[in-house]
Design a protein around this nucleic acid. Structure first.
Lengths: 249, 249
DNA sequence: CGACTGTTTGATATATATCAATAAGAGTGG
DNA sequence: CCACTCTTATTGATATATATCAAACAGTCG
């Protein structure tokens, strides 16, 4: 495994910035670290280390003391809740540059699992709390992120409580389109991209069953709104029509 | 209307603490203000004013620039989202001592409305932001509150996505029991309290219809788990049985 | 008392879950 | 490169929970 602290030993520039690691970090600008100056970045860097997560591996468990915080470098993680009889609801998705963890909070009520292979930049929670305590602007940045996450969660509450299966699927596809960007042959034309989630995971995000997800997708395919070339690939053919089906707020 | 600033003029103790207002404030200890010392409390007090809200009155509107932050003094407010065709989902309930608003965030995507008459201690957002900026411990306290709110929202996502109507109702009743405390004739015996929400509001919280809420309640009554003496009054007869029905995480 | 709002109850419709089978990929090892 | 297993996805038949439509029934406030 790649250990960032080792790298620090042999490569940092005159400001003490860990050159080979944070400066080259793909998510540096978009992550919480983006607000940090060189000095602080270097200090934070010393607290963290990179870690690879295999598909299905967890970094936080519902009900347990939360030991770490992390920035996502690559891959997608799910935040999920379970009923005691095993039904699952995915209550959040974490993408590269997203922050995981709850500084200043003892326990965390959800499980965080890598949906595919992933890489994270991980910090012991107590170290991270100490780091935050003397940097109000960073606490503020985290607060802003948390408000955003809360708004997302609440929007999905509307989805789960009040929208039909077709609305949920359309909404989900549009969100995925925004996320991935996708690839289009001609401007304004059909856009193709791969869903980063299995049908089962989509069902757990949308509060549906696998079968309903599948059926709604083929319904959209038959209607000519999307294409399903196979696997997890989707083509958005009529984006406006899809937006119309989504019908959201 | 009662203006707290007027009070400040004629009653504060030697530390500059607004005696008749903040010191006597019913929610002082439980609210965000609870973390403040006398100096800071006095400074914050100057920024805010009390405001009475009539039943149905809103203090924030979805999609609009959020002008204010506030502490709830009395009453219950709802945070709600609407689909464009008018279906409503209540995505949060605010009780006395709860904080409303999103400092450092321009817009707010939900509407906040008083369910009954209510009183709030309201601050212009920009003033409150300036106040927070120089007080890291307060920013931290707000961050902790926001994490709690997020956890609540996510737990309700599990409820909305994966639980049956009877589970939702049982869960809701237990939460209300915890909130209100209720009143019991004998320890461990039946507990009676008034629901602060109409059937319609309960339906909007739980993602159900009024009729389903009503039916599930009478089902619990017939089963002898609860009593419904009339109006919004509920008696919890078999708390363990109710917990069993709730079946939660 | 009568209009009104909120609640309960009933009959029926419908969306989605459930159960079940088939099909399509994706690895794995011979 | 071809079986072989495993997982994932699609499709079908049916069940069921909850929504919808509709009416009766309280409370409440003029």
């Amino acid at each position: 495994m790649f250990d960032s602290r080792t790298t620090l030993a042999w490569s940092q520039d005159e400001h003490g910035v860990p050159a080979a690691v944070c400066k080259d970090c793909a998510v540096r600008q978009d992550s919480l670290c983006g607000t940090l100056g060189d000095q602080d970045l270097s200090a934070l860097h010393k607290l963290g280390r990179r870690r690879h997560l295999h598909r299905g591996e967890a970094i936080a468990w519902a009900g347990e003391e939360s030991r770490d915080c992390a920035n996502i470098l690559s891959g997608i993680l799910k935040v999920s809740a379970l009923t005691h009889d095993g039904r699952e609801q995915i209550v959040g998705l974490l993408y590269p540059s997203d922050f995981v963890g709850q500084p200043f909070m003892g326990s965390f009520d959800f499980t965080v699992t890598a949906l595919g292979d992933a890489e994270v930049c991980i910090f012991p929670r107590s170290d991270f709390e100490r780091f935050l305590s003397t940097r109000n602007h960073l606490t503020q940045a985290l607060l802003r992120r948390t408000f955003d996450t809360l708004s997302d969660a609440r929007k999905r509450m509307l989805l789960l409580g009040r929208q039909s299966a077709s609305e949920r699927i359309a909404d989900f596809l549009l969100q995925m389109l925004d996320r991935t960007g996708g690839c289009s042959a001609s401007a304004g034309g059909p856009v193709t991209f791969d869903l980063p989630l299995s049908r089962g995971a989509i069902a757990d995000v949308l509060g549906l069953t696998i079968e309903t997800v599948s059926r709604q997708m083929t319904k959209l395919k038959i209607a000519g709104v999307i294409g399903l070339p196979g696997g997890r690939t989707v083509t958005i053919v009529k984006r406006e029509e899809l937006r119309h089906v989504a019908n959201a707020a």
